[in-house]
């Protein structure tokens, strides 16, 4: 395991990889993840998909395996409980604490309070779903709930990220690769409008029971609870059936009116992210597979090590970009909000 740190900040950003099942865990560790994040098999996390995630036993085994190989385990408990489900969420916090996870990733203020009060020794991270985009908010979370790290929403430009890191009392984790979300995350109401269930309360952007894929003479149609999201020509790449990535007729044009179905890829910003002092780089995709995690982790491990060893010579290798594009939604990538001229 490489142990070099940045000559500028003296830091080595942690590579945090997504894990939705046992095979993904093995793949992430094998390819050099510093930490993995996972969730319970229920609505307490933002990837609440049938057959995905871990039961208590599985988490205990995952922690054993990871720790034996020097990898940390974070548990995402990042949806917002509704009044009727409160104890379901608090008991998940309690179980996570007794399982011995290295950190709990929370969004809800009530759960943060519960965790701080009942498990003062437990390390807390603020989830991306908490939507904190300024250091004043982070200071509040830190002072009030003792959070030690925050994951920034994928809506800030690089300069804004730098500004937050400079003043933040807690370590900052940013997304490096994977699906994009245009909303100030945790505040999306798009699918709630279509289905009555929102990502931040039920843990899925497009709950599968509302999704239909139909082959029609016009092409492959994706519908969410009856709403037509997109129609793909036979050879056109498809995307996830999320409303934000659909094509809609607006002012006489049919196009991706909200966001294009591409993946965020910040590989080329890596030296700058390290220089800014981000503590960790997160890979999206607990809903994917062992093949995905293996490919993405391998590339990012190599890239981070290369950027630490010689930041001034760093440039993303074409084969890294090709490997990442291969597993991207829409088979292309974007810098998302990190690079945008306006602020």
């Amino acid at each position: 395991m490489p142990s070099s740190t940045s000559p500028v900040t003296g830091r080595r950003p942690e590579l945090v990889c997504p894990v939705g099942n046992r095979a993904m865990l093995e793949a992430a560790i094998e390819q050099g993840a510093d930490a993995v994040y996972l969730g319970f098999k229920n609505a307490t996390n933002a990837r609440n998909f049938n057959g995905l995630n871990f039961d208590e036993d599985g988490i205990a085994r995952a922690i054993d395996t990871a720790h034996a190989r020097g990898c940390r385990v974070f548990l995402a408990l990042n949806t917002y409980p509704q009044a009727e489900g409160w104890t379901h969420w608090t008991s998940a916090v309690d179980r996570a604490a007794s399982l011995g996870v290295d950190a709990l990733i929370l969004a809800d203020l009530g759960l943060l309070a519960h965790a701080r009060e009942r498990h003062p020794e437990l390390r807390l991270h603020l989830s991306v779903q908490g939507s904190a985009t300024n250091y004043e908010a982070l200071t509040f979370y830190h002072e009030r709930y003792g959070i030690e790290r925050a994951v920034l929403p994928r809506v800030l430009s690089l300069e804004q990220v730098a500004q937050v890191v400079r003043h933040s009392p807690v370590a900052i984790e940013v997304f490096g690769f994977g699906g994009l979300c245009v909303m100030v995350e945790g505040r999306c109401a798009l699918s709630a409008y279509a289905t009555g269930q929102s990502p931040n309360c039920h843990g899925a952007c497009s709950p599968a029971k509302f999704v239909r894929w139909d082959e029609t003479p016009q092409g492959l149609e994706a519908r969410l609870n009856g709403f037509l999201i997109d129609r793909y020509a036979p050879d056109e790449p498809a995307g996830y059936p999320t409303l934000c990535k659909g094509r809609f007729a607006v002012g006489g044009h049919t196009y991706y009116a909200i966001e294009e179905p591409t993946s965020l890829n910040t590989l080329e910003l890596l030296p700058r992210l390290i220089e800014i002092g981000v503590a960790a780089i997160k890979i999206e995709g607990r809903q994917r597979s062992a093949a995905y995690v293996a490919q993405v982790t391998r590339v990012w491990r190599e890239a981070i090590d290369a950027a630490l060893a010689a930041p001034q010579d760093f440039s993303p290798k074409p084969q890294w970009l090709a490997a990442l594009d291969r597993v991207s939604e829409g088979a292309s990538h974007t810098l998302g909000a990190y690079s945008r001229p306006w602020k």
Binding site: G20, F49, N50, G51, A208, V211, R212, A238, E329
Partner: peptide, 27 residues
């Protein structure tokens, strides 16, 4: 998902069952 994006894997009918099958096989 990669095969699906590239239209090499086609899934039609009950999406919830499809996801269950996929995730179970993966797990």
């Amino acid at each position: 998902d990669t095969l699906f994006f590239q239209r090499r894997l086609v899934l039609s009918g009950d999406t919830e069952l499809g996801l269950l099958v996929k995730n179970t096989l993966d797990a």
